[in-house]
């Protein structure tokens, strides 16, 4: 399983998001790869889930991968409530660990 965090440049906001996702994965005891990407490369990337700031909505349409948008990027509760259910679901579909 791979989770991609996305922002405009691929090293600022997305990196923050990635750190939260890593914490969350640890918390849920789910193993997954995390990586960052800038907007330009996201279409060529392979991932099971994309997490991005909500301001990227208009830039991230028509993707074959599900995208979760986050309003407050440092709000652990928001990230947890939006991302955790999807992570669990993906983990189960992948056959558990």
């Amino acid at each position: 399983m791979k989770i991609l965090t996305v922002c405009g440049m691929g090293f600022g906001t997305s990196l923050m998001l990635k750190m939260f996702i890593q914490d969350l994965l640890k918390e849920l005891n789910i193993k997954a790869d995390t990586d960052v990407s800038d907007l330009g490369s996201v279409r060529g990337s392979q991932a099971d889930l994309i997490v991005a700031p909500s301001d990227m909505k208009t830039h991230l349409v028509d993707l074959s991968i599900p995208v979760i948008f986050i309003e407050n990027l440092i709000d652990k509760r928001e990230i947890r409530s939006k991302v955790a259910p999807v992570l669990k679901q993906l983990h189960e579909t992948a056959g558990g660990a």
């Binding site: 922002c7 405009g8 440049m9 301001d55 208009t58 830039h59 990027l73």
Partner: peptide, 12 residues
């Protein structure tokens, strides 16, 4: 960058 990509730098 903000003009092109929007105000996503407002992180919190």
């Amino acid at each position: 960058a903000i003009e092109q990509l929007g105000p996503y730098v407002v992180v919190a």
